[in-house]
Each structure stands twice: as structure tokens, then as C-alpha cells.
Design a protein around this nucleic acid. Structure first.
Lengths: 108, 108
DNA sequence: CTGATACTTAGGTAATCACTTAAGTATGGA
DNA sequence: TCCATACTTAAGTGATTACCTAAGTATCAG
């Protein structure tokens, strides 16, 4: 449950598709598996990676396991990008300040 | 240069640290390597992963290779989260659309 | 020219990954 | 009770990953 696990989980197109599906609402394992051509155990393994990352949670009721996204984990990753953007924009603000201060190039 | 490569690149803490460093401004390879205890070739391999993902670009001048982030690639990944958030926020409308779009097929 | 600096290339290894097939367990319906 | 459904467990494989060391090339400084 950290950025490592989160980004690793999202690096796979199958797992991203599963997250995309689950942002629309909960689904059972077989429902999640249906769009893919791979075996069910493979899907379950992907699910395990998503659960380990904290992006997805699930509960079993009877013989059906129902999965849902955990939006908090998604937000955590999103936040990393926000920080990067903030730093990046801040950097240009400073450059802008510098150019305003020394419009004719290098001081000294 | 896709989400696969981008998230894969960001799944490693060393590479994330490099991106964090580069959002503050360009740096040479050895400058980037300095904070880490690993060998220089290892750092260069991480850099290659970042370049392959499109997150980082570099140019060599004399014997120094200068690296900088490519904010567009960062935005692309960020955008994926924005989409997820949007879907999450009106998931009840979109669940039907998804099921109509992939009644039996492959969402990738 | 000589040596130091800044990478670059090559090759090796242990661990992890994304699957597979085969066989198992638990639940629910007729 | 019998059978189908819905996973679950186990074990194996080929590919990729994240490092390493050793040795190479290219540039610049004196």
C-alpha cells in the first residue's frame, strides 16, 4: 500500500481496465473476468495485485466475491502528480521572477 | 510512450525520486546519480526506462548528458486519474454505457 | 600527451511477473 | 442428492527486472 504498489498495479493494461470497470461500480470476479481472454486464475492474480496495492477491496458473500475500488488509494497516486505539477509550475514562477528582475540577461 | 510504460516507470522509488529531482530543473546523469548508493550503470538503466516512457528527455553536450522532465507525459498519466475521478463521480450514469459497449468483448 | 571525468557497453544473476493447466473447495438450485 | 457455478490452490514456465562488475569510449584540462 504505497506508491510503488499502486503504480506497479496500474502499469498493466488488464488491471487498468479492471479499475476502469470498477470505477463505474462493484462487480463480481467472473463479471470482471468476462471481457478478457485469459484464464480465470490469471484474472484473480491481477485482482490480488490490485488488492495488495489497496486500489481494490473485495468481500465474499456465498460463492460470489464482490469487488469495488478504493478511491482513497487512487487519490494518493493522483496527489503525487499534483505535487509534481506544483513543483514544476513553481519553478517557472521563479524563472519568471528572475527574468523580470534581470530583463537584459545575466546579472553582474 | 503509453500508460503502461509511464506507470511502470513510476512504480520504482528510485525513478520516482529522479522525476521529483527533475521537476525542479534539469540535471546531468552524475548529478542525478549522486543521491543513490547504486552503481552508475544502474542509474543509467533507470534513466533509460524513464526516457522510454517519455517522462524524461536528455541531450548530450560534450561528455555531459543533461536530463529534463517531459511534462506532457506526466500530464497524460495525470489525465487518466482525472477520467477515473470523473467516472467515479457519475458512475451510476456510466455503468450502463460500459456494459452496452463491452457486452462480451475486450475493453483494451 | 596524460590523466581524470562522464558516461557507455557488455554480460551475468537472482528475483519477480504474467500467464498457463490441472485439480480442489464451497455454495446454491432442482 | 446431484450438478453446475464461482471461485481457489498449486505448480510450472518463459520473459522481464533490477541490480552488479568489468571494461570500453569520448571529452576536457593541464
Amino acid at each position: 500500500m504505497g506508491l510503488d504498489a499502486t503504480f506497479q498495479a496500474l502499469a498493466d493494461p488488464t488491471r487498468r481496465a479492471m479499475v476502469e470497470r470498477l470505477t463505474l461500480g462493484p462487480a463480481s470476479v467472473s463479471e470482471l473476468a468476462r471481457p478478457f481472454e485469459m484464464s480465470l486464475p490469471a484474472v484473480v492474480q491481477h485482482l490480488a495485485v490490485l488488492e495488495a496495492s489497496g486500489l481494490v477491496a473485495s468481500e465474499k458473500l456465498g460463492r460470489v466475491r464482490t469487488c469495488r475500488i478504493e478511491p482513497a488509494a487512487l487519490s494518493l497516486a493522483e496527489h503525487w502528480f499534483n505535487q509534481r505539477r506544483a513543483e514544476w509550475e513553481d519553478r517557472f514562477d521563479r524563472l519568471g521572477d528572475y527574468l523580470k528582475k534581470y530583463p537584459d540577461g545575466d546579472p553582474r
